[in-house]
Amino acid sequence: MYAIKTEGLTKYYGKTRGIERISLTVERGDFFGFMGPNGAGKSTLIRTLLGLLRPTGGRAEVLGLDVARDREKLLERVGYLPAETAFWPGMRVRDALRLSAGLRRRDCGREARRLCERLGLDPSRKIDELSLGSRKKAAIVCALQHEPELLILDEPTGGLDPLMQREFFAILRQRSEAGATVFLSSHILSEVQRSCAHAAILRDGSIVASGAVKDLTRAAARRVSVRGRAALDALPGVRDLRQTPEGAEFLYSGQTRALLAALAAGDIQDLTVSEPDLEDVFLHCYGKGGGQA
């Protein structure tokens, strides 16, 4: 059973592309990261999954429920953290949390208190007087207090300090271990690499790479670092070439034999070949011409 399943999901704003033919599956219990720079379509996908936007084409299911037909039923089981946290004016944190619980017809008081304690959030404070980070914490409690089966988080760590980011991800991991699915969008790649089991990369509204984070980094080009001089400019498969005082660093996705021949023809003292991190995969996907990872 999938937590999220989309088939050819497309959204256009008039003639402007939002997302195009996105087919994606997220298993229940998965910790899934969704990456892409601003404007790639991450928020459009999330808003379409939550029924805020009507798709132009394709279909989407969340927790086995059709997004267009069963919106209210699925929203009972989903917690959503928007990228931009805004609350109604003049409210205290506790009022906003009670309102959110009331709209869900649930009593979430105990879990809300527990989360506020963990995040160091004073529920008696007026939201208008809170810092950006504390407003984000209030939004996190709003999204988590009803203990949803699926958490959809759009750029969740914006405004949180590193200590609070760590605490937040600890909460998410506990929820994930308890069986909840976490689906988060981010452009902080280390965050995805550290926490997510699976990931997808979005480019110009379409998915250009997806799979297990380990497989993604394995399948992509290797990061090569050489000490010395060799003619690498014309070698097919070299990307992101950066000359350093000692030599050069680059991503290589060509034939190993051709690389070794080019290096042997030069004057090389040392060579390191390593698996790239998610940032390399991302840059690879966003490099000239892009391409499937």
């Binding site: 805020l52 039923k73 009972e76 931009e84 109604w88 869900r104």
Partner: peptide, 14 residues
Amino acid sequence: RGHTAELLLTHPLS
């Protein structure tokens, strides 16, 4: 206008 639509409309209300 107040950017609260996302918050309100992701609650289980038609």
